[in-house]
Amino acid sequence: MRIIFIVREGLQGFKRAPLATTIAMVAIALALFLVGLFGLSVYNLTDLFQRFYQTVHLEVFIDPSLVEAQRSALQSRIRRIPAVERVWYVPPDKALQEFEEEFGEDLITVLKRNPLPPSFRVVLKKEFRDLPTVETIVKQLQSFPEVDEVVFQRELVRFFQKYFKLALAIALVLGTLVLLISILLVFNTIRLTIHGRRNLIEIMRLVGATNFFIKGPFMVEGIVQGMIGGAVACGWLWALVDLAQLFISETIGRPPHFYPLLIGFGIVMGFLGSWLSVNKYLKV
């Protein structure tokens, strides 16, 4: 009986104050849309960065006079370096082919011979891809007598690292701001809808309702508002991601469990907003 009353009373709030509850739901939807939009941006930015880093590798040019046995021995030594994820051999003719594909020039016709030395391509593990670590590994590789030279896209790594950190810092500040504004917006709207029904709370207190009974219906209402607001925000973001995939890039995606998390966040906001607002009227 108690639970049925609380749930029914909570749901009837939508019928009894349709305007106020609708405004609260729209506020929640807007707030979650902002938060979600922000989450999507950061997720896709990080994803882009990760994907770029996948392509970063070291080119280890080796002494062309090495016989195959020496070469495999060197490859094994490189593979044993803890930071190394993958290492593979690129023979001169393969390097030439790649060069010609990339720059469209026929080196053989110009130079009459293949100028490119044999090399190893080395991909580092994710956690060893920051610039100082890469430099250390480059030095280590260069200390091998069979290695002539090690090159990698140093400037590109430096550029990305610098701007990624900056972007992340800006995102953090903006994200906190967006989150705060969203929470304030939602809490304030819910507070207003509850303020409109302070009479109800006062009567409940007068006739001897326990705090559980007074809060219960508002909690139910808050949870349902959060759920509906969250679902609406998810709809908007879904459409937005679809459009972005169509017009910007197919690689734009959403984090795992994005929509359930967003609805969950809506529920938590609705619940907490109602909880705090009702509490204000329960103080003696």
């Binding site: 009986m1 108690r2 009353f5 009373e9 009567i203 409940m204 006739v207 001897g208 309702a209 326990t210 009974f213 007074i214």
Partner: peptide
């Protein structure tokens, strides 16, 4: 009825 509902009385 509200005064009884909020104290958890039976219908």
């Amino acid at each position: 009825a509200f005064a009884l509902q909020v104290v958890g009385e039976h219908r």
